[in-house]
């Protein structure tokens, strides 16, 4: 494969990542949301492998495998099990104002392109143009966490942000040093363990995973 083909392949994958990010932003069913998250992980993993191939960076294969096992297999599996145990499979969230959320998402993409412009100019990597997409994915994940009121969707938004960060590292610098990537993966694993426990605690204390019900702590009574 020549550089041109690989670069366009990488851009194509980046576009798909962004597409999944938008789809997650407005997906109402929790099950479908998890599937979207797994797809996003798969695209990232593929993109990392492609970048690893073109740049001849072998440690990227390891991170690609790590992403595959963690974000495509393990985390979605954990979420499935949790949802099954908590019996919230059929829950459908109401999302206020879908068109508005989409518009804000679009604005975030434009903002990301604008913000990363100086970095793009300095970079000589084939993947440099995807950095904006990565930042957009981070910001859309953030937006998702703000607009959603369900504990599980907030966590998926959080994990989507993490995906965006990983993507940013791949596209800006061909991945962080391996020790850092491994450490980040470890942190995500611990976080998964913690939110798993949390879901049960919240469910017991509030009888639901609706975060809106948590509003006892206020500045002044």
């Amino acid at each position: 494969m020549d550089i041109e083909t690989v670069a366009s392949l990488s851009s194509f994958l980046a576009a798909l990542v962004l597409l999944t990010a938008f789809a997650m932003l407005v997906q109402k069913r929790i099950y479908s949301l998890i599937h979207l998250f797994a797809w996003q992980g798969l695209l990232l993993s593929a993109n990392t492998a492609v970048v690893g191939y073109v740049a001849a960076k072998h440690h990227l294969y390891i991170s690609s495998l790590l992403t595959l096992s963690l974000k495509v297999v393990l985390l979605p599996y954990i979420l499935h099990v949790l949802i099954h145990r908590l019996k919230i499979r059929k829950e459908i969230e109401t999302i206020v104002n879908v068109p508005m959320t989409m518009l804000i998402g679009l604005a975030l993409v434009i903002f990301s392109y604008h913000l990363t412009a100086p970095v793009r100019e300095l970079s000589s990597l084939v993947t440099r143009s995807t950095l904006a997409v990565a930042l957009a994915t981070v910001l859309i994940g953030l937006l998702m966490m703000i607009t959603r009121k369900h504990a599980v969707t907030q966590i998926i938004g959080f994990l989507a942000m993490e995906n965006g960060l990983f993507f940013a590292a791949t596209s800006a610098t061909y991945g962080m040093p391996l020790v850092v990537e491994l450490g980040v993966a470890l942190d995500i694993l611990i976080a998964a363990f913690i939110f798993g426990i949390f879901f049960f605690h919240i469910n017991t204390a509030f009888d639901s995973l609706d975060v809106e019900k948590m509003a006892k702590l206020k500045e002044v009574d």
Binding site: M145, F158, M161, F195, F198, I202, M214, L217
Partner: peptide
């Protein structure tokens, strides 16, 4: 494990998680 404690911890987890990202 009181409702307020869980609320506080959730806030801590989410806000610091987002921040640190």
């Amino acid at each position: 494990r009181t409702p307020t404690a869980i609320e506080a911890a959730w806030k801590y987890f989410i806000l610091c998680g987002v921040g640190i990202s």
